[in-house]
Structure formats: structure tokens, C-alpha cells
Design a binder for these strands. Structure first.
Lengths: 204, 204
DNA sequence: TTAACTTATTGACATCATGTCATATTCTTT
DNA sequence: AAAGAATATGACATGATGTCAATAAGTTAA
């Protein structure tokens, strides 16, 4: 027996239980999608008692949120990268890179993102999580646009907030399209094209 | 066989039943949203027997699709309006007008569109209905872009399909934003801004 | 070591929505 | 008016959810 430390065997077991459930949940989500995924299935797969699941999580939604935490953090990371271009060309290069990074997330996390997309449509809580990410992006882009306008790089007559939203929206929809594997062109091609239209339309 | 004249009292009653249910359904949908709307509630409100609802409709989804038919038709109508501009300025005017018409739908049909948006996230059948509308729009826009490119009005190096999607995506997301009443600016302002960036970015 | 206490687990149960189907009702035809 | 056809009906089977009182497992302190 191990000793010396605090008696936290109980707590450890609890963590194991939680973990088992999370893993089972992920498998079921990937197999069934969010809609069709059923808690009792996860419980069965995790080999725990029915009620136990509800001790650890409030329900399906809660489970998925935990499973998506790292992905959401990655989006926040991308969203936080601000930039201060000195020229239109530099802007285009950076914006293209960011659009790429954003869209690449769809490929990198495609399976869980598919589940996530479904869940956004169904669960208010999860939808709010995504909305928060969206807000973050739009705020960042808004600032970038305003900066470019202040420095005489971008058309000052445009409402920077509206421009930022429009730009993000196009990116977001492409993201989901890639998630669903419905895109025809490569991510690079997509990023290049929309960036080009955007930069040409906004910058001077 | 049906003679259309005599003895159609039964058929008429059936139509009335269907109608009563549709009206009740609309009320419930508007009160509760798609998710929370419950068939038994509609049945109660319509004063018909439980099983009767299933004689006329397959379920909630089916009911909503019928209720949204005219709205969907309006979208198709807007989507079908193609155009052949002779100059960048003319293009901007027409595109702005179309974006406006599209976004105005959100205001005109806001309540049912709110229900519809929820339903798109939840029901595959309804989601497919919207996807068909989207495809229609993108096809139309794609053609418009290609036409402009062929006539030396737009940057020929861009993939017209990708440009069209991006443009529609921005419009679509704004549409939902307006549906949810989350927009800050007026529809006109939104349309003007995104059109301006788009036209400046695409046309020569 | 044991008794009291705390924390975690459990499955039976109550609840609620759905869709089906055998039966009943209402209307039409002969 | 009897047979036949189209509609309507609600009881029922099904399946998912979340709760909770009871129990088990682990910890602490005497």
C-alpha cells in the first residue's frame, strides 16, 4: 500500500469515474453525433452507474463543453493575435495567414467540430460558448480595421464594426463548410480568395 | 373516384382540421420556439384528437415546413433575380438592392424566421430546405460574378464560385443576426457597407 | 481498531414527449 | 338502410431524461 500522503483515494476514484465517462462520451458523440448521442449509452460504455453521470455532469451539453475546451481555447488563441500592418501588402499577408489558421482548425478538429456544429444548433449553452468566440474574433478584427483606417491604410468611410462582422461571417461559414467536408477547393485557395476580395475591398 | 362536386363534406372537414392544426402550430411555435414546441400542445389548442395530427403531418418538422413555404418561396424569388451590369457603379447599385431585399426578409418575417433558425439547427429535413435555398443563391451569384469577369468588369483571377460563396455567407450571417435582433445598425447601413467592400474588392 | 462521518455511487422511479394502431365516427354510395 | 370509404381518436408502447433515497466506499478521530 502506498502511504505517507493524504487519504485521497476516494477523490482519485471520483476523478477516474469522471474520466471514464468523458472518454465514453467522446466515442459516442463521434459515433452518433450530438443529437442522437444518448447519455445512457455513454454510461453503459463507461461502466458506471446511471445516476453517477449526473453527479459529474449536468447532461450531454455539459459533457461536450468539457470535451471541446481545448478546441475552444485554440480558437481564442487565434482570435487574440492582433497585428499592425504598415502597408496593404503586409496586411494581406497577415490576414491571409490568419484566415488560414482559422480555417485549418476545421480540418484539424473536423470530427469533434462536426459534433460541435450540431450541438450549437441544439443547445443554448453551447451556442453561447461559440457566440463568445465569435464576439472575441469580431472585436479583434474591428480593432485591426480601425487601426488600418487611422493609419490611412483602409477606407475610412466604412463602419469598421460592420466590415469586421462581414469578414468574420464569411470565414465562419467557410469553417463549417470545411467541417462538413462540403468544400470543393483547398483551404489555402479559399483563404487566398476571400482574403483577396476583402483586402482589395477595404484597403487603399 | 372524386367528382369534386357532390359529397365532399368529409374532405372539407379534413381540410378544416388540417388548417386548425396549422394555425395552432404557428401560435405554439411563436410562443415556444421550435425546440420547446410540443405537438400535444398544438393538438390541444387545435381541439382535435391526438392521433389526428399524425394523419395530416409527420411531426413538428413537417408542420413547420408547411408554415414556412411562402417565406421560402420569397427567398427563391429573390435568389432568381439575375442581372447584367454594364459598369461597376451599376453593379454596386443592383447588388446593394439585392442585399437589401435579402436582409429585409429578416425584418419582415422575423418571428417565424426565429423559429426557422432554431429548426435548421435541430432538424435535418428543415436544414436541407435552407441549404437548397443557399445553393440557389450561390449559383445565381456565381453566374453573376462569372458574367462580370467575362465582361472585363471584375477581377478575372478570382475563383467566381469561391467569391460567390463568401459573399452569400456574409449576407446570410447578417440575415440571422437581424432575425435575432442582434444587429446594431440599420439594414440599409449593413447592406451598404458589405456591398461596398464586396464590389470594391471584386470589380475593377 | 472501530465508530462516526464524509463523499461518491447507484438504479429504481417519476416524468414527459413521441408515434402507432385498432377502433370508432362520420360521411358517401349503392 | 346497408355496405363501404375516408377521417378521427385516444390508449398504449417506447424511449430518453433527471432525481433521489439508499448504499457503498473511504477518511478521521478517539
Amino acid at each position: 500500500m502506498d502511504n505517507g500522503k493524504v487519504g485521497d483515494k476516494r477523490h482519485l476514484r471520483s476523478i477516474m469515474t469522471r474520466q471514464k465517462l468523458l472518454e465514453a462520451a467522446k466515442e459516442i458523440f463521434l459515433e452518433e453525433g450530438f443529437q442522437a448521442a444518448v447519455i445512457s449509452q455513454m454510461i453503459k460504455k463507461a461502466n458506471i452507474g446511471y445516476g453517477t453521470a449526473y453527479v459529474h455532469f449536468k447532461g450531454k451539453e455539459d459533457l461536450l463543453i468539457v470535451l471541446m475546451e481545448n478546441v475552444m481555447d485554440q480558437f481564442y488563441e487565434i482570435a487574440e493575435t492582433s497585428f499592425f500592418p504598415k502597408s496593404k501588402d503586409e496586411a494581406e499577408r497577415i490576414i491571409n495567414k490568419q484566415a488560414n489558421a482559422f480555417l485549418k482548425m476545421a480540418e484539424a478538429e473536423r470530427n469533434m467540430m462536426q459534433v460541435f456544429e450540431q450541438a450549437i444548433g441544439i443547445s443554448t449553452v453551447i451556442s453561447d460558448k461559440w457566440k463568445a468566440i465569435r464576439v472575441k474574433f469580431i472585436q479583434r478584427i474591428s480593432k485591426d480595421v480601425a487601426y488600418a483606417q487611422q493609419n490611412g491604410l483602409a477606407r475610412a468611410e466604412l463602419n469598421h464594426e460592420l466590415v469586421a462582422r462581414g469578414w468574420f461571417f464569411a470565414n465562419e461559414m467557410y469553417l463549417w463548410e470545411i467541417v462538413r467536408n462540403e468544400h470543393q477547393s483547398s483551404v489555402e485557395e479559399i483563404a487566398k480568395t476571400i482574403t483577396s476580395v476583402y483586402v482589395e475591398g477595404l484597403y487603399l
